[in-house]
Amino acid sequence: MTDAVVIGAGPAGLMAAETLGKAGFSVTVAEAMPSVGRKFLMAGKSGLNITKAEPSATFLAAYGDQIPTALTTALHQFGPAEVITWAEGLGQPVFTGSTGRVFPTVMKASPLLRAWLARLNSLGVEIETRWRWEGWHGDTLVFETPASMRTLSPEVTILATGGASWQRLGANGHWARHLPESVAPFQPANMGFSVNWSDHMGPYLGAAVKAVALTAGDQTSRGEFIISARGIEGGGVYMVSRAMRDGAALTLDMKPDWSHDKLRNALNKPRGKTSLSNHLRKVLKFTPVQSALLAEFGRPFPDDLTTLIKTLPVTHAGPRPMDEAISTAGGIRFDALTDDLMIKHKPGVFCAGEMLDWEAPTGGYLITGCLATGAMAGAGAVRFTRQNGVVSAS
């Protein structure tokens, strides 16, 4: 017997389990993969960015203009300050980088995850791996396990089954078939875009593009991005990927800190017999990859390059496949949930993390959102059981 079952052992699920365990509940976490936190560990391979230290209004704006009320509440209750306190409470000191991004001092995810699992163990949380959720039989949860089919009938359930990208890490979206009436279609988020490069771009595949500004719709990013054989990807692109996915054109400002007048004056300096690429290198400090991008997307060149350099149109063939995306939009609609993330038509079943229909850019926002909704769902489950008198947890 168990008071609560949490399905999914990513950041949202583990935070829900911690919240329930601290409230005195017996908790079983069911994870379909052979080990827990696989996407969490992958996110930390190049440095685990756990949150972003910035004013609350700026932080919330990263989640979009129409952020659901429940998500706003969750982020107010468990925002950047709480994430930092939580990590440090697990013995993982953090530091804040020049851009406001917050990292564990060791930069890796594995020490934080080990400390977290030790805490959960001390709370009596049981974790079962290779338990694949197969929906309900009536009100009973059904799992496929290596030994046999198993069923559990907890008082409360937290679903934290992830989005629909990175299938090899366990996030495949297959859970949506169990809740078809509550799910918005999945879409890629924080994804790269396909570009059919001409042959002259071959030497620049793998190159990083820095010191430019990317604009799509009303979104602008100063982050760097990578030219890959498949197209463009990386943090700078991810910041504007939502607008691009929704149809906004992408332009590059190749000299974002220069005014039109300053740029035009520099371009009008005598060129002589110097090639255009060398002229751009001398007067604008263009890198070879910047010159290559200008040629790729700007030819035939106009007489005055100023406007082209400030708003270089990028031709692309749409988002890369969803399974390559860092995260996904779509999932459980917020209008199908109560204010504390319980499914309206399934009392006692709460949802958290990337399976909810929200999206945010990389840079600490995704992990914070998962932790915040996990904490909210766990707290909601505690209140539900106590209000209904089904668990006498202390």
Rank of each mutant, 00 (worst) to 15 (best):
L60F: 05
P80F: 11
A360L: 07
G47I: 01
A53G: 04
T385P: 03
I84W: 02
A74I: 09
L60H: 10
D335K: 11
V209W: 06
T2H: 08
T287E: 14
G37T: 13
V391W: 09
S198A: 15
G318T: 10
W197F: 13
A243H: 09
P319R: 15
V183H: 03
P288T: 05
L214W: 09
L179A: 08
S35A: 07
A147W: 03
P34S: 14
L20C: 07
L280V: 00
I158P: 01
K269A: 07
V237H: 09
T362I: 13
E324F: 08
A208L: 14
A249T: 15
G272A: 13
Y238V: 14
S394Y: 12
R386F: 10
G192S: 02
V283S: 05
K210P: 00
S148T: 14
A176E: 08
Q290R: 12
T338N: 12
G235V: 14
G378T: 02
T85F: 12
P302G: 04
V390D: 08
P34Q: 15
W86E: 11
A176G: 00
Q387C: 14
G170Y: 10
L75Y: 08
K22N: 15
L169I: 07
G298H: 06
E18M: 12
L60Q: 08
A249W: 10
L117Y: 04
L267P: 05
D257V: 00
D253F: 08
D257Y: 07
N278Y: 02
E233F: 06
E134W: 01
D339N: 11
T51Y: 09
A189D: 01
R132F: 04
I127M: 02
A352Y: 13
S291L: 00
A81R: 15
T58S: 12
L356M: 09
H178A: 10
F40C: 05
R383P: 00
T157C: 10
G353K: 12
G79V: 04
D199I: 03
K310C: 12
G298W: 02
E18T: 01
Q66C: 03
L252D: 05
K282C: 09
G318I: 13
L20N: 09
R168H: 13
K108I: 00
R177L: 15
L356F: 08
W175N: 01
A213P: 12
L267T: 15
L179H: 03
R320W: 11
G192Y: 03
T28N: 01
M342Y: 09
F297Y: 06
P321Q: 02
L305Q: 05
